[in-house]
Structure formats: structure tokens, C-alpha cells
Design a protein around this nucleic acid. Sequence first.
DNA 1: ATGATTTCTGCACGATCGGTCAACATTTTT
DNA 2: AAAAATGTTGACCGATCGTGCAGAAATCAT
Lengths: 208, 208
Amino acid sequence: MARAGTTARKTRNQMEKRQAIFEAALDVFSEKGLRGATLEQVAKAAGLSKQNVVYYFAGKDEIYAELLESLLEKWVQPLHDLTADGDPLDEILTYVSRKVQMSRNMPRESRLFATEILHGAPRLGEVLPTDLKALVDEKAAIIQGWMDAGKLAPLDPHHLIFSIWAMTQHYADFDVQVRSVLGPERSASRFEDAEAFIKDMLIRTLRP
Amino acid sequence: MARAGTTARKTRNQMEKRQAIFEAALDVFSEKGLRGATLEQVAKAAGLSKQNVVYYFAGKDEIYAELLESLLEKWVQPLHDLTADGDPLDEILTYVSRKVQMSRNMPRESRLFATEILHGAPRLGEVLPTDLKALVDEKAAIIQGWMDAGKLAPLDPHHLIFSIWAMTQHYADFDVQVRSVLGPERSASRFEDAEAFIKDMLIRTLRP
DNA sequence: ATGATTTCTGCACGATCGGTCAACATTTTT
DNA sequence: AAAAATGTTGACCGATCGTGCAGAAATCAT
């Protein structure tokens, strides 16, 4: 009778179905965007009927919103793992590695966030200026500390982080363009080549 | 009776109206995407009725397709202007300047192309592997020549171009995120800071 | 001025989509 | 096994959207 997700309690079956819907929604939304995708496409990809999807989620927007939220933590984890403990250059290069790895293995998530931010991030508007800003400021301060200690060349840490985001996510978000320009042969190793290139660039740049 | 754009000939009035529709479409499509935008939003932004818009263009998709095509040339012009004539580093830094300038002054165009490519570039599929690839290959060869001559540090020219695209367009496409993270104060100079940062990074990287 | 051409609008159709609801089926609980 | 809760489906509705079309209105040519 009542909808499934009404209470906070979730049975095993409910969790599985919701996960299947999330997986399908990630597929469809990342490819067509929120408005471009239909509930029926999501339902079909999840192996359910449209009405059954609505049984587990209040509606299309809720699926999208909850999907975004459920992925956010995993998405910023690599930056979170950048700590003041290790060697400065190693920390940053490891961060690059993980970001390239995410572009390769999680292109759908990358495109989902890219589309959302590209269109003004109406469903992330709260979290960007608070949580994300706090996280970036914290890591920028660490990098600044390394620079002040003479362990890295002095650069703007915020724009350094932006440039790493931009260069790494570029290979997920604009994969079609990258492959078109590189051609079939060179496309095969595009992620390895990109990682090597970006690391090389950062090593030359950050060397004190 | 018949539609306006049937023949190749276009009167002055027709050109003006079409231009107004293009301008409105750029506004709406870049903000909401093709599927997310409606003809009526475009019409209203152009100061016309929905049916009148259809009089000048066959339909929504045609507006979008012709808009993309009409912007493509202007969009790749900066790369086209990169020639073997000038000083290697100057040529590249000038290219960066122009790309940052475009992110600042033409963010709608940037987001339009970004959205299109992000979703698989179904309406650019032909031009990417032919025209764009040829252009990038040509410029990559020039850069490679500079590197072979010892005027620049040896790096993969294709990925160098990608990285410039990524870093510069990032400030247009993800402007909301950039501003959120930087905060109101630092956002004011974000384009100047970005240009200085990227140039600094490239100087350090490309120095032989 | 008059006819021809261009420009614009009113009306409305067909399709699609998100969402509702009642009924039916299945599983779980007692 | 009976009852209750959970899960699923078919039919359908209201709204929106793209588009077609007849004809009015405005502009232009002669």
C-alpha cells in the first residue's frame, strides 16, 4: 500500500532494489542528463516497471538527488586522503593517480557531477560553498604549508587543485573528443599517457 | 506561406531574426541543455512567439544544430592562430591567454560545447574525428617540431593541448564550483589568477 | 491603390512524460 | 492457514511540448 521508503527502516530487498535503481539511474542520467532521461529508461535499465520504480522512490527528482548525494562522499575521497603526513610531491602525485583512475573507472560519476555543475549545480548549491570549500581550503592550507617550507615551488594552491581537477576529469567528461582527436591507436593508452603527462607537468612545476 | 529559410537567400530581416533566435538559443541551451530547454523559452528570450520561431527555423533541433555549427569556427579560432612563425613559448602562452579570455567572455559557448561533448557529441560526431583531429594534429606537429629543435621541453603535444583545453575551459564550465570554493572575495580575480597560474605552470613545464 | 510576398498568430493535434490509484500477487508474520 | 505487510502491474490522467496549418496582418512591389 504505502510507499516503500516512507520510514527510515529498509529491508534487505528494499536496499537491493534501490541499489539497482541507483545503478540504472547512474547509467541513464550520466548519459542523457536529468531532463533528457525518462523514468521509463531508468526503470527498464533496472529491470523494473516505471510504477515499481516510483514505489521505491518518490519520483525522478528524488532518485537523482539521492544518487548525487550517495556518490558525493566517494567522489571527494581522494582529496580527503591527501594529508600532511607524507612527502609533498608524493601526496600530490598520488592524488593525480587516483583522480585519473577515477576518470577511467568511474566516468559515469564524473559526467554526472560535471553535468550538474555545468548547469549551475541547483541540487548541490548548499554543499559547494560549505563542505567542498572547507575541504579544499584545508588541503590548500596543507599545500601552502609545504610551499612555505620550501618543499614545493610557490604557487596558488587553490588553482593547483583546480588544474588537477580539470586535467584529470577532462579524460572522463570529454572522452569522445579525446578519442576522436587521438585516433583509435593512440586512444588505447590515453589514460596511462595522460597520467604520465600530468605527473610530468606537475613534477616540473612543483619542483622548488 | 512557405517557411523563411527554405531558400538559401536570406533577406536582412530574416538574418536579424535568425540572429536574435541564435542569441536567445545560446542563452537557453547553454543553461538548460537541449532537452532541458523548451522552444517557448527560446522564443520568449528572442521576443518572438513559439510559432514564429518555427517560421524561421524548421524546429528545435535545427536551431541547436545550426547554432553549434555557427559557433564552431569561432570556437577553434585561437588554436588555428597558433603558428610556427612566432616564439614557441609566446605562441603557447598567447593561446592560453585567448582561451582564458574566451572562458571569461564566452562562457555560454563553452558550456554549450561542453554539454554536447559530455553527452557523446551526437551532433558533432562527424567533425571531431576529421576536422578537429586534423587541426590538433597539425598544431601538435608544430609543437613537436619546437621540442625536437630543443626550444621546448619534450612532452606529448596532444596531451599538452588537452591540458590547456581542460584548465582554461574549467573556469567557464565549472564556474559555479570555482566561485563556491574560492569564496566571494577571491572570485573577483579568478580569471586573472587562473591565467597567471596556468602560464606559470606552462613556463615551468615547457622550459627546455 | 492593388496585388503579391513576407511575417505572424490562433487553434489544435498527437506524442510523451511524470505521476496516481486501485487491484492483484507475493512474501512475511502471527 | 489466516492475516498482514510488502511488492508489482495495468489503466489512466493532467500537463507539457513540438509541430502543423489556415488565415490574418503587415510589408513590399508595381
